[in-house]
Design a protein around this nucleic acid. Structure first.
Lengths: 163, 163
DNA sequence: CAGAATCCCTGCGGATACTG
DNA sequence: CAGTATCCGCAGGGATTCTG
């Protein structure tokens, strides 16, 4: 799947740099346009969808839940919490609801007692996980670099604005 | 998307489900393990790196800056702000500093007056952009689905906890 | 021009208690 | 079991002001 776009090294930057994107002059609020490796430039709409997807993914728990579901297929509420580890019920509920609304997971309620609810990735959710797979490959490939960078990160910079 | 995760069009979920990941029983704080498409399972370290990378990317501005830099190659501070659009100097500075510390961009100061600082993606930064390319492809491929889902999102759910 | 410093407000997210 | 409801701390991030 990494070979979806021929050689995944940095042809994106290359293609994007070569092309002349429709860069709006900072008028209607960040109109960034990315470039697909196969030549076609993405529309602002797609660009926005990507941003939304990424923003959603990165809310600290979504990715973990997605991973857990990708691994185990179908899971109950509590089980997901266990597998993820350290997540509060509040956040687990919110995350799952969000995922459900976004069409990434299905929620099936069994009218039993005690109640039983099962979650499972949709096709869309699975495909998203697959899409993010290349990021894993990237991390793998640049593992040593990342490690050394993280190690040599000057501590003075870290406690700048945040602290 | 019925019930099988075996035919889920992506090998990630399939491979991950097949393998038996080292899932810590919610002890040392979420030990999620992802599965690479080529069979090798990622280590918790790589997994963590991915999480960090994604978390960083999604901080609302990083991705935009990354895109802009990927498109234009080398840019000055103010120019980046213009191209991104709507970002405050404070956030732009923070974002660029973070990106620099992470080894994704280089920062070159020219001792002139008025001062001039140029930013540019490193190899690592470019490769990260390339890695995220598949997410764009995903958004492209599932564009119509995402659109309809976004449209049919029940408004009652949206104004739950957040509002 | 490229930032650093300060103020302040919003919302994420943890902890806890209650319910069907 | 699978949530919902409430309180609350704290970091993210915008607006503004000052400086080398």
């Amino acid at each position: 799947m990494a070979d979806t776009n021929t050689t995944v090294s940095n042809d994106v930057a290359a293609a994007a740099t070569a092309a002349t994107p429709t860069q709006a002059p900072a008028a209607s609020g960040r109109r960034v346009v990315f470039q697909s490796p196969h030549g076609a430039s993405s529309t602002p709409e797609i660009d926005d969808m990507v941003m939304q997807a990424i923003a959603r993914i990165a809310d600290k728990w979504t990715m973990c839940v997605l991973e857990v579901l990708a691994q185990n297929g179908v899971l109950r509420f509590t089980r997901i919490g266990e597998l993820v580890g350290g997540i509060s019920q509040r956040m687990l509920t919110k995350t799952l609801r969000q995922l459900e609304d976004d069409g990434f997971v299905t929620r099936t309620v069994y009218p039993e007692v005690p109640p039983r609810v099962e979650y499972q990735l949709t096709e869309l959710g699975s495909s998203l996980c697959a899409a993010f797979c290349s990021v894993w490959l990237w991390a793998e490939a640049h593992c040593s670099e990342l490690r050394s960078i993280k190690a040599s990160r000057r501590p003075t910079r870290a406690a700048k604005d945040g602290a």
